[in-house]
Design a protein around this nucleic acid. Structure first.
Lengths: 111, 111
DNA sequence: TCGTCATTTCAATAATCGTTGAAATATGGA
DNA sequence: TCCATATTTCAACGATTATTGAAATGACGA
């Protein structure tokens, strides 16, 4: 993982919003059009931001009919948080890195 | 804390290196000149990067004699990691955010 | 006061960024 | 096949970025 690339990908308002939406959408992802509508962004602008997220390893695409479905890559985000956690504590993690998983529909919430 | 500003501040090779060095240096900080030498960066370039880190709340300065001593602001880094942890897990933290503290000279390491 | 060390300020530059509008491409349905 | 939908590609633009060199500022010691 390239930490600087991942940080740069998230260091922009619209792109951070897009990624947050993707995280909320979970592993099934979300159609480009739906994201464009949710965030009120022009589709071509969105393509530009998707490219950045993908190049940083933070998102994937697949085609589904006419739609392009984008999904968050949680493992990359996980690695990024791990990197930052290690580097914010002087080279030694101050706590085990939290495991970031796709939001699951939890029927049972662990205490 | 402005997450985008903090992300942008760290999303650059030299600046990330500077911040990592500051984290290693701990709360006492490090003189600008020492950082310039350690990372082989021009002093004026460094001033530019320090400004970014400071504006993002990731560093502080104080004068000590002729030297300017820069230090990492751990609380901001902490908040950033917290923000990312929450946002990488679909709005709910998947684990308590790790407390990132200045590297301490630990005489006793907790089990 | 003078010189030197440590750092900042300023102006200039090339490179990258985010957005726009227009045109192209791909898919599915009538 | 023709049309509409969904998204991408492309060229252009102003804005921001990181770096450089030269000059300025501030602090200390002789």
């Amino acid at each position: 993982m390239d930490a600087v690339a991942a940080l740069a990908a998230l260091a922009q308002d619209n792109r951070l919003d897009v990624f947050r939406l993707l995280v909320q959408a979970g592993p099934d992802g979300m159609a480009a059009g739906a994201i464009a509508e949710a965030l009120d962004l022009a589709p071509n602008t969105l393509t530009f931001h998707f490219d950045r997220l993908r190049m940083a390893g933070l998102a994937t695409v697949r085609r589904e009919g006419r739609s392009m479905i984008y999904a968050a890559r949680f493992e990359t985000m996980n690695a990024l948080v791990g990197f930052l956690t290690e580097n914010c504590c002087g080279g030694t993690a101050c706590a085990p890195a939290p495991a970031c998983k796709p939001a699951r529909k939890r029927s049972r919430v662990p205490a």
